[in-house]
Design a protein around this nucleic acid. Structure first.
Lengths: 308, 308
DNA sequence: CTTTTGTTTTTTATCTACAATAAACATTTT
DNA sequence: AAAATGTTTATTGTAGATAAAAAACAAAAG
């Protein structure tokens, strides 16, 4: 088949979840906008809802006839976009302990294992290559460079340059800029998390990501924003599978964040710089400690493949 | 057809160019290594050379029978890789004055105009997107963000952060590091260029690229290196088609480079920082001046396509 | 005459096929 | 036995086909 209708299925599920009996549904363009899809897809959803007897549909008259049941939803696994499937599968593979730096990555084999065509895998690898974890030999295979300490150090260096820049920019924003409100909200979320830290310390990753994203937005620089997107994805998977010391790690980070936020709020450049540096230095240390020091670390090429 | 044998043709041309009558040719692996291709391709070249009567080939005995003529070479245009063709064609299109920010980019149309398949165009666009000049709407078209002054400013900001970092690193390299020799050679090339400036000022771009590349290598950071690769490509095309004031622009840059080189050689951090900042500030100004201030600059979306 | 719905066209996302190229394996030569 | 050549296999690069999704166009309703 040429293409899975995962977008349709996912949007359908989302829409079904919000239906209440007897409600009158809005116009097609409104539904499309609400779901973030085209009107064609919105109409396909209405068509199916109508066929399933969940709504009655006659031109502008769209009424919910019954409460949707479990059976009305598409299975969860049919709603994952191919890209997400590949991303997860690939990340799992290359951040796992078996993946050694220098390994070759085979497009065809990867495609077969994931159960997809080669073009999607190819395009994924091209997109993924900007994260600096893989590299292409022209007319030949990809090489896994790996999540090594060199990678972490190079990443940390750039991250520090960018974040110092963004934080300084943040401090220069006009007092009435909405980002200050967002910052205060995030500050409050930090306090909330602390309240119930033992239960909720795992939620910190997500808060961390949002906090740094907010700061980077202040730079209004597409290269910085793109780089942070890349970092966020890599970290997302990395820390998801490296939970050692998560509690103490997050505890320290929260304290630093709160100090950093106050520094930003003071709008004092020197204080911002200091708080930012302190946090970045400890983030760097945390990152380095999270990397398993394997034997293959020293970078000799290994001719085995990534798939074992 | 599935794939052009441009690699073979290009390698063949390169090899033919170096043949001298009566010479004995080395082994197949050596030829392959010399040309940077696989032995399979090297053998294909030998096969064709033999068929064309240019060499006699019997196992290890490979002798050049005659001097190759014009007619023995493949036409130049058959040796360009598809990627290069697309890159040139696309750059020409999006850096031209007709391309307005906000325009849509149509994969199929682009492929037809370039005379190629859609997959290559797609992959090119994905790779190219890291330069920040285009952006994808998922499940929909690409948008041309354009070579605007915002782009130039964002680029310049990152460039300055990176180059200050790299230059500082350069100054910290051990005295016996080969980079110092390379730096001296590049310094000499600057003097040579100055000697015959009226005739050769157009050669400066290439020297400029090599100089900055050398500095960025000192950072040993893949993100910095990748970013500089991107800059180099964008600038390559941009300045190639914006030759106004090239002479005075290059003259000033050479003077700054020489000062910058001396600062590096002094290994004095403060002096390096100053020289680097001076050069970067003027490079930023040069870049901004080279951008035509068109009406569509202010970023309102334009619904016309890039192909008009 | 503006918005909504109905219908058709265009474009993207993905798969599959196949030539070019690389890589692996087998045989010969030194 | 090490390296070269000969032969076969695997993998990448590219084109082309097709369903999903978006976009454009046309008709109807307010």
């Amino acid at each position: 088949m040429a293409r899975q209708n995962t977008l349709f299925k996912d949007a359908y599920n989302r829409y079904v979840a919000g239906l209440k009996p007897d409600a009158a549904l809005p116009t097609e363009p409104e539904i499309a906008a609400e779901l973030g899809v085209s009107r064609s897809t919105a109409r396909a959803i209405l068509m199916r809802l109508s066929d399933a007897g969940i709504i009655s549909w006659n031109k502008r008259q769209k009424t919910v006839l019954r409460q949707p049941t479990e059976a009305d939803f598409f299975p969860q696994e049919e709603t994952n976009s191919l890209h997400d499937i590949i991303e997860r599968s690939f990340m799992l593979r290359i951040l796992s302990d078996e993946a050694q730096p220098g390994m070759q990555i085979n497009e065809l084999e990867l495609a077969r294992e994931i159960g997809t065509g080669t073009s999607v895998v190819r395009e994924f690898l091209i997109r993924f290559s900007r994260f600096g974890l893989i590299e292409k030999r022209p007319n030949s295979h990809w090489i896994l460079k790996g999540f090594t300490s060199e990678f972490a150090l190079e990443l940390a260096d750039v991250r520090e340059m960018f974040e110092l820049h963004s934080a300084a920019q943040f401090g220069r924003m006009p007092v009435d800029h909405p980002a200050w409100t967002s910052l205060a909200a995030i500050q409050q979320e930090h306090y909330d998390l602390l309240e119930d830290f033992d239960e909720r310390y795992r939620d910190f990753s997500q808060l961390d990501e949002r906090f740094h994203l907010l700061i980077h937005r202040a730079s209004k620089n597409r290269f910085i924003a793109d780089f942070y997107d890349a970092i966020a994805i890599v970290f997302h998977y990395h820390y998801q599978w490296n939970k050692a010391f998560a509690r103490v790690r997050n505890s320290r980070a929260i304290a630093e964040h709160l100090d950093y936020i106050e520094a930003l709020q003071s709008r004092d450049p020197a204080r911002i710089d200091t708080a930012c540096r302190t946090h970045l230095a400890s983030a760097r240390q945390t990152l380095l400690q999270s990397i398993p020091q394997s034997a293959g670390e020293i970078g000799e090429a290994d001719t085995s493949t990534v798939h074992g």
